[in-house]
Amino acid sequence: MTQPKYRRSFGDLSERALAFWLLLPAAMLLALVALYPVARLIYTSLFRRRLTDETGLSPVYVGLSNFAQALSDERFWTALWNTLLIVLVTVPGALLVGLLLALLANLPFRVKWPVRLGLLLPWALPLVFAGLIFRWFFDSQYGVVNDILVRLGGERLLWITTPDLLFWAICISIIWKSSSFVALILLAGLQVIPKELYESAAVDGANRWQSFWRITLPLLTPAILVAAIFRTITAFQTFDIPYAMQNGGSAFETLAMYVRTTSIENLNFGYGSALAVLMFLISFAVTLVYLRYVRGAED
């Protein structure tokens, strides 16, 4: 008796309502794993909560004072500045190296897999492993970098413990690790550029350099933008490589490293959450700026 009625009511669902019910499970899952943690983070950032005193069990509401503290915290500004430096050096660096790698991989080699495998390997390697590997490369006593320097008649440098050298060592490691991801995206972009364009350009007497500037680069721009967005967002979250390279030290500290130390090591969850919210806002703002660009490029 009830069954036909039920079936009819299901069939009566408008397309809009059907879409709602079909999307609900996915939306709920997303809310659970993405929205809830972010909401919880923002909530915690409004409390004084240190696991090292009584506020660990009974947090005290402090309004925005954690944020006020961050703005007058010298270490926060240093970490932010360091993060910006990483973005400014490694994003263009990875784009440039990635573009070269993609162009190389796009050459008509007869056997393509060695180049492609070489492209994929750094990308497939976990970030911490990359950090540890480069830590050994730059080790002052046993590292391959100093070994080469000495053989070339140079001097051993203390890469890991000299701040300026450490910064460049970190940047080189990040560029090595991330340029293969950039190259993969750009390679996909290169392969959809029709070959006829190059052929007709050649017929018109354009040299390789001209066809690169006039055909390859303009047609590759959307792919470059996509790569730049992803790279910038991950560069703002840089943590693994500098952390692993410094053996847990903080001579060069990024925002993500400071968030971790504050919450996980010093157990200051309220302040750590406030720092994480600030980091989230910065990443969010950068993403918005890029999205505007992308939309502009599409129009």
Binding site: T52, L158, T161, T162, G249, S250, A251, T261, E265, N266, L267
Partner: peptide, 17 residues
């Protein structure tokens, strides 16, 4: 103690570096 330790070990390390 975690914070005390961090202050001492990071600063001592910077002096040694």
């Amino acid at each position: 103690y975690a914070e005390i330790s961090e202050v001492i070990r990071v600063t001592t390390n910077q002096v040694l570096a």
